[in-house]
Structure formats: structure tokens, C-alpha cells
């Protein structure tokens, strides 16, 4: 990872940097792991990066991030949103929730970037707040497709279409932008604890993702490490809960 980006672009306080040249194989998938319900996206994307040994090639910095934080990792400053690549997969993971003020710009930046890089499909991973999650042993996976091409991905895959409900936050805007830009966007949702990191939900989504992309992702290690992942992600979960509340997302029914 070089410290001087080979490419940069800025949009409303967001800075996208590529650290090196890279090529994506096709059909290519951009998998999004943004902090949301149960951190299902973050856990899924992190697991992809680790098990597939994906390479960090780019990142997005939120210059208006509050509190102002510089994440130091392996001795270098790294942005809170990181982009990794391997063969036909690109994964975006996040170390901090997206501030509500940056959600619009980020959604635009991600869809524009996907088009620029010739990404064939954007796959958003998110938890669906399930009040009965505690009684569900195997979280179910649902999907939303932005268009026919995205819908075709789900043919022969065991998952339910998500017919009624709502998405709040960055994924909602990414979906709308993708529809407008005619970029196929598939949203994969899994039953999840609203406010606890949910590696089991992530494992179910990854099983579906394996079928769609043809890239086998072993989730055994993810389930083995589930408790440590939950422990490690407590802080991010708390921040995410706060951010979700600010965006008016599903909130705890505390003394409602």
C-alpha cells in the first residue's frame, strides 16, 4: 500500500483514493459492508477480505467525520472506508458508521465509482431488524433487485424476495441511485439482531453470495470466531446504533 494515491476524487467532503492500479475480472461484484442493523454487512465483507486474502487497493475518507479520527493501522493512516480487490470481487468495509450528513454523497460516490470501474453488480449486505431473532436458529435471507439483470442473479438461489418493508440509510440511497444509473444492485438482507453484531446472519448471507458469485466462501471460521467478532465489534455497534437513530432508522423500543 503506497502512501501516495495513484488516483483521487473528491465529492462533498468525501475523498476517494486508489493506492495502485488494478484490474477487475468479469462478471465483477462490488460487495458493500456498511455499518447497519446487526453489522451484517461489515462482518460479511470483513470475512470475505480475510478468507479470500483480498488486497486493499483503495479507500474513502470522510473529511467531515465526527469525532475527528485518524485510524492508524500497520503504521499508516487508513481511511474509515476501505476497498479490497481479488479477481472478480471488490469489497468495501467500514470502520466507522457513515455520518448522516455524508450519506447522500457516499451513495452517489459508490454508484459512480462502480460505473467507472465497470462493476457488473453492486451487492449490498444488510441485516433486517427482526424482533423475533432470538427465537430464530437459522436466519433467513431475503433479496431486493434494482432491475432485471440483478434479479436474474437470484434464479435458482434459495432466498425470499423482500416484498414489503423499508430500507433506511446508505443502502436505501445506493439502491435508488443504482436504479437511476441502471447499475444492477442486489440487496441481500438477513434476519438479524438489531443492536448486536450478528455473525450468524452474516454467514447465511455469505452462503447466498457464494452461489451468486461462484466464489466459494467458507463460513466455518466465521462461526467459530463468532463470539470474538461480537466482542470486538461492540464499539462499532454502539456508534452505529447512535447513527441509525439519528437517521430515524429502526430504534430500540425503549420505554416507547
Amino acid at each position: 500500500m503506497s502512501s501516495v494515491p495513484v488516483y483521487e476524487e473528491e465529492l462533498d467532503g468525501l475523498l476517494l483514493m486508489e493506492y495502485e492500479e488494478f484490474e477487475l475480472k468479469h462478471p465483477s461484484f462490488l460487495v458493500l459492508g456498511l455499518p447497519d442493523t446487526g453489522l451484517v454487512g461489515v462482518i460479511s465483507a470483513n470475512h470475505l477480505v480475510e478468507t479470500l486474502g483480498m488486497k486493499e487497493v483503495a479507500g474513502i475518507d470522510v473529511m467531515t467525520l465526527m469525532p475527528p479520527v485518524a485510524v492508524i493501522s500497520k503504521g499508516a493512516v487508513r481511511p474509515p472506508l476501505r476497498i479490497y480487490v481479488k479477481d472478480n470481487l471488490m469489497a468495501l468495509t467500514a470502520e466507522a458508521p457513515v455520518p448522516p450528513a455524508s450519506v447522500h454523497a457516499l451513495a452517489k460516490m459508490i454508484v459512480d465509482y462502480a460505473m467507472k470501474r465497470g462493476v457488473d453488480y453492486i451487492v449490498s449486505i444488510v441485516g433486517v431488524a427482526s424482533p423475533a431473532r432470538i427465537n430464530i436458529e437459522k436466519p433467513r435471507v431475503y433479496w431486493i433487485a434494482s432491475n432485471e439483470k440483478a434479479r436474474k442473479l437470484m434464479e435458482g438461489v434459495e432466498a425470499e424476495g423482500f416484498l414489503n418493508g423499508y430500507l433506511v440509510g446508505p443502502y436505501a440511497l445506493i439502491l435508488k441511485n443504482a436504479i437511476r444509473a441502471r447499475v444492477p444492485n442486489l440487496v441481500l438482507l438477513a434476519d438479524a439482531y438489531i443492536e448486536f453484531p450478528d455473525p450468524e446472519a452474516a454467514a447465511e448471507v455469505l452462503n447466498v453470495l457464494s452461489k451468486i458469485t461462484g466464489v466459494q466462501v467458507d463460513t466455518k471460521k466465521l462461526l467459530e470466531q463468532a463470539e470474538m467478532i461480537r466482542l470486538r465489534l461492540r464499539g462499532l455497534m454502539k456508534q452505529t446504533k447512535q447513527t441509525m437513530a439519528e437517521m430515524g432508522g429502526p430504534s430500540p423500543l425503549m420505554y416507547a
Partner: peptide, 22 residues
């Protein structure tokens, strides 16, 4: 360590979930 927890209010009861990973 402070665990993550959520309090749900129902008409007849409170349900508290606490994540005690590990």
C-alpha cells in the same frame, strides 16, 4: 466489560436482551 443490551417494552412486560459473547 459493559455488554451490549436492549430493553423492549411490551404492554404487559419488559424484555431485556444482553449480548454476553464469550
Amino acid at each position: 466489560l459493559s455488554p451490549l443490551y436492549t430493553v423492549y417494552e411490551f404492554p404487559d412486560k419488559y424484555v431485556v436482551l444482553v449480548d454476553l459473547a464469550a
